[in-house]
Design a binder for these strands. Sequence first.
DNA 1: AAAGATGTTGCAAC
DNA 2: GGTTGCAACATCTT
Length: 274
Amino acid sequence: MPELPEVETIVRSLRPHILGRKVSEIKVLLPKIIHTEGLGSTEDLIGQTITNIFRWGKNIVLEFSPNWYVRIHLKMTGQLLVSLPEEPIPKHTHVIFSLDGGKIEVRYRDIRQFGYIHIMTAGEWKKWRDGNFVGPDPLEISLPSFLARLAGKRGKIKSVLLNQAFLRGLGNIYVDEILHQAKIHPESSADHLSTEEATTLYQKMQQVLQAAIWHQGSSVSDYVDSSGKQGEYQYYHQVYGRANLPCRQCGTRIERIRVSGRSTCFCPKCQRRR
DNA sequence: AAAGATGTTGCAAC
DNA sequence: GGTTGCAACATCTT
């Protein structure tokens, strides 16, 4: 679920509640959620202060002064929820961080249990960050860099955009929305796009992501921010989740196909195959 | 009621 | 490099 706009919204909603607070206790209800590199455990975080929180692609990164980092990936159904300790613990809650002596809690909840919380040293974090697994941020990359990265890319444009090593943060919803805005067929070869098409793609990518952040993400099933609030960008979707409905641009029936194993919605008229 | 689908990603196999 | 299929798991839809 959570793609760049949702993760950004979660980080922004979490920040004022946790920044500068000290971890007093961590309850691990489902141990497999916690990942480490062998060194490090939840014990190492006790008594440490959260000095920073930021988004890295679809990852949420917490910085603890100054030795430890925690990287959280929500995968499909993960949630981070700010709660008071007396609030009932919802089903599928797997890890509970108590802050400031138990005045407030941050709870990790994940229905499908695909997500994880990775505890890393500063060195491990930097090694991961600078590895080749994650590309530039779609909102930070310049147009020339984007065009340069796209040049020589083989494969379908949808697969390229979903690849986190190409750009970090795009997922199934926003790739479909961006390609519709850019009027590009999801199965177009990346290396067949003209400079003009690639430029439009870049512009629409930034516009769609900015608009989605503005509307606090898309709640299509489980997504909520850290206060439990749903997003509203789903009301602006042009293609995602609209198979067999008329295109909002031209009225043509939206089609659903499978592209590199992912369900893909597009308008056959707005997004002509070339 | 069983089968298929669901926003992610890492891996194996080709 | 590129692709496909599958795995992790719970829940909802067909």
